[in-house]
């Protein structure tokens, strides 16, 4: 029987989003196929791994992921340079975790200063994240967006509760915007529509449908991402054609599998390798579902995932 492979062509296409400035600029999106389906059509840009750094030394990172950064965690500038120059990161995600009222409760002004310092020390694009405190983020991210004016960063995350302020700040200062909703394709679509109704171009949004770790709801994130992609491509839904973000590290490095020692749980095996694998496996499965910007923490897992991206393209 003769065999001809069934190729899928879609009417929809993912928006091309450029981030950063000059030589450090990266481009996301642009494909008209499902993740890595280069046999169906075009995949002009590879997914990108952004290395997460924080504005103040993390107090909730397990040793396994903190120790590679032991020498730099006290300085966001040194930390950023280390990612760019030693780890050869293509992008950095600066999480302003220290601004959370339960943490150091740093002021928006302090946060803005950190953003300025980091931006002046690296050439690669920077994603600027709040502490996920809807109220505080509104003030912190406005200050951060101003401090980063015209550097073409990605600012986030705008959620239903605070999107107006954050989207306005991103718009005024020429940034891209992360729109985050909670594990539901309809909520994600709705937030994209609300944000674009403010006059914010939908082509400048990055979708974050909310991440989850392997074993802790990963299948939900996986399927929501897959469905968003199919809506964008097969149904040509113009409100869902943005690149998707997988904020992997923050979810992975709080689960038991990345913290419990082999002494405590012998049947789980070596903690060092298990925790790195947990982050890398989570990341690779989300890449296959549609994420094309990943925020990760451990240098080893990030490195392994970057190699897989190369092997897949």
């Amino acid at each position: 029987m003769p065999f001809t492979p069934t190729k899928e062509t879609y009417s929809g296409k993912i928006y091309t989003v450029a981030v950063g400035k000059d030589s450090g600029m990266i481009t996301l999106g642009g494909e008209n196929v499902l993740p890595f389906h280069t046999f169906d059509g075009l995949l002009p840009n590879r997914p990108v791994v952004a290395y997460e750094i924080q504005d103040s030394p993390p107090d909730d990172w397990p040793d396994e992921v903190l120790s590679p950064y032991a020498d730099v965690v006290n300085s966001p500038v040194l930390w950023a340079k280390y990612c760019q120059d030693t780890l050869m990161a293509q992008a950095i995600a600066l999480r302003l975790a220290g601004t959370h009222p339960d943490r150091a409760n740093r002021s928006p002004e302090d946060a803005a200063q950190t953003v300025k310092d980091v931006l002046s020390s690296v050439d690669i694009p920077v994603i600027i994240l709040g502490s996920n405190h809807a109220e505080k983020d509104a003030s912190v991210l406005v200050a951060a967006a101003e401090a980063a004016k015209d550097r073409n960063c990605i600012i986030g995350k705008a959620q239903e509760a605070n999107y107006k302020t954050i989207a306005a700040a991103a718009m005024a200062n020429n940034h891209k915007l992360i729109a985050m909703s909670e594990l539901d394709i309809n909520l994600s679509k709705q937030l994209n529509i609300l944000i674009s109704q403010m006059g914010f171009e939908k082509e400048r949004i990055i979708i974050d449908p909310m991440c989850s770790a392997l074993g802790y709801g990963l299948e939900y994130t996986y399927s929501v991402m897959e469905r968003i992609r199919l809506a964008a491509l097969a149904q040509n839904d113009l409100t869902m054609q943005q690149p998707i973000l997988g904020d992997v590290g923050i979810y992975v490095w709080k689960v038991k599998e990345t913290q419990a020692s082999e002494t405590d749980v012998p049947q789980w095996g070596n903690l060092k390798e298990r925790s790195v694998a947990w982050e890398a496996v989570t990341a690779v499965s989300l890449l296959l579902a549609g994420a094309e910007l990943l925020i990760m923490r451990h240098p080893k897992s990030s490195d392994a995932v970057r190699k897989v991206i190369e092997e897949l393209t």
Partner: peptide, 15 residues
């Protein structure tokens, strides 16, 4: 290795 099995078993279960 046990660490790897745990990750792969879990992904299989999720998918």
């Amino acid at each position: 290795e046990k660490w790897k099995n745990l990750a792969l078993f879990t992904l299989r279960q999720n998918i």
